[in-house]
Design a protein around this nucleic acid. Sequence first.
RNA 1: AGAGAGGUGUCCGAGUGGUUUAAGGAGCACGCUUGGAAAGCGUGUAUACGGCAACGUAUCGGGGGUUCGAAUCCCUUCCUCUCUGCCA
Length: 423
Amino acid sequence: MLQVSFLRQNRDLAKKKLAIKHFAQPNLVDTVIDLDDERKQLQASFDETQAKVNSASKEIGALMAKGDKEKAEATKTDVGEWKKQLEPLKEKMAQVEIDLQNVLVQFPNLPHDLVPLGKSPEENVLVREGGVTPKLHPGAEAHWDLIKKYNLVDFETGAKITGSGFPLYIGKGAKFQRALVQYFLDFNTAAGYTEYLPPFMVNAASAFATGQLPDKEGQMYHATEDDFYLIPTAEVPVTNVFRDVVLKETDLPIQMTAYSPCFRREAGSFGKDVRGLNRVHQFEKVEIIQIVHPDKSDEVLNEMVVHVEKLLVSLGLPYRILRLCGGDMGFASAITYDFEVYSAAQERWLEVSSVSNFAAYQTYRMKCRFKDGAGKIQFAHSLNGSSLALPRIFAALVENYQTEAGIALPKVLQSYFGAEKLI
RNA sequence: AGAGAGGUGUCCGAGUGGUUUAAGGAGCACGCUUGGAAAGCGUGUAUACGGCAACGUAUCGGGGGUUCGAAUCCCUUCCUCUCUGCCA
């Protein structure tokens, strides 16, 4: 959420930056300031009257103690009058606060200066690429054929059990998932991240804090009986560890990693992107999350990008890193780098990780602050990234490592999987 | 799931309608004291909003209510603990 004080001081800059994110109603910035002015005014007169009530009430107490009942009763009448004035003020103030909040939550985060202009994925900027695209043998197949051929994943039975997009991993397919999760977690903890295993459902306050509510309500599965949401990413529960917390400056940076299944309704998706493991409703992911000093978040973002890059290099997959343009970025992000791996069999790039700096957008919503050296309270910055999401990594690995004899494995995974090759 | 007991500041803990302006203790910070430390003494030690400031307002798990006045009474909700039940 954007801070009113920032919007107040940077009215035009905010509008300009919102335009980069293709936000349709830049004039809401003015609305916010007007509402905030009104709120201030209402509070001033409310506080003033309330102060009179408070001190008169105390006086009544003193008068009663002295036994001066008559004067006490007279003061009660005065208080009654003031309280009548208070009622409408209170109501108006509550309404203005709701209105203000309703407008504020509509603003996406402002883009970082490095974010390129653009509307669609074609306008993302290629930062760098690496790895070598393998030369596959003739007759090489896409993962949806390979997993059928080797009985690694059964979509039909998953659909029978639950519905489409809920894959059933079997045998070596299931074990491979476990091996990947284990490898990714070990890789992250070796770099200093602390491992968490969070709840897989969250309450509305948590979903709101990281920005899923109200923006992406329709994308989450909702358990209405208890009003819990199935998490779309471990980012939601893990970032919320620090909701409503005032940290010490020396606690920063906080580095966390977590495995979780992710549940996404993916309402509105269609087309060839949804084939096989390219887009599913439930998948496994290992996430990295950091909460850092605001002066450090740019630098930390780059470190996280390099971290994920190293992980991809270790898997021997051809990859590229893109800086997303304003139109392709997420709602809460200030700057995002997407990682894609090349699927040699599908002959297309698959997004496998997204690393973002949220600046103070999430931390302001969730009131995650720290006390700096001077004793001043500041909002921390939050960042996160996938390290890594499994389905498309799985797809790219089986496609790129396929041979006529079976499917090989990158060296780093052999000990985790307990064999030299997958098949 | 049923019955009961609870939730107070950084922590422990007192507080059943009015100088509570949340006692007292511990911790922490600073100062005094000391050769240095400990002890002792003194001072300070939550957050948000409004205000240039003085200060005001709100917050005793959350929300609502009663009252001139609520940590305290009432309703509701969440959480923790104990017992019982059920269950991996």
